[in-house]
């Protein structure tokens, strides 16, 4: 097999041609509908808690709590991965997807024990989100401190 740079480029072209493409329109539509519906449910919950006399921030936290609880349950019984297969971005991006990444990593590591397994693996996917979320918040805070 010719493994020169030119042959590799040619190979990569052929691979692109012969690799089936995902049906983008269908995938995007499913994500749109499923993600939209999750958010509508979030809005419903938020109003429910606001009407129940909670402050805006309290209501937001309670909404998260419900979402994370549902995601944890669905992940545990193995349903979230099935939903994710169908909904794609629609179940990855909402807060439920964040919870799913933590719960799935944790359960997977159960065999390695509570400390070195679950404790260490819980943030294997969510960790970078926290690291770069907090870092960007510090950048925002730093700039805000000087320009406000």
């Amino acid at each position: 097999m010719d493994t020169s740079k030119k042959a590799k480029e040619e190979y990569s072209k052929i691979v692109d041609e012969l690799t089936p493409k995902s049906k983008i329109l269908k995938d995007v539509f499913r994500s749109f509908v499923s993600g939209g519906l999750i958010c509508v449910f979030g809005q419903f919950l938020k109003e429910f808690f606001l009407n129940g006399g909670f402050e805006k921030e309290e209501a937001a936290l309670l909404v998260n709590m419900v979402f994370i609880g549902i995601a944890a349950l669905l992940t545990g019984i193995g349903l979230y991965s099935k939903l994710g297969k169908f909904c794609g971005g629609g179940t990855i991006v909402p807060i439920t997807g964040f919870a799913n990444s933590m719960v799935s990593s944790s359960i997977e590591a159960k065999a390695e024990g509570w400390i070195l397994g679950i404790g260490a693996a819980m943030f294997s996917i969510a960790g970078p989100v926290i690291v770069y979320g907090i870092t960007s918040s510090m950048v925002v805070g730093f700039i805000y401190y000087f320009v406000k």
Binding site: S31, G35, G89
Partner: peptide, 12 residues
């Protein structure tokens, strides 16, 4: 919400 999720799918 739908648009934000759809963009993610497009990226994937």
């Amino acid at each position: 919400g739908g648009i934000i999720c759809a963009i993610a799918e497009l990226l994937i």
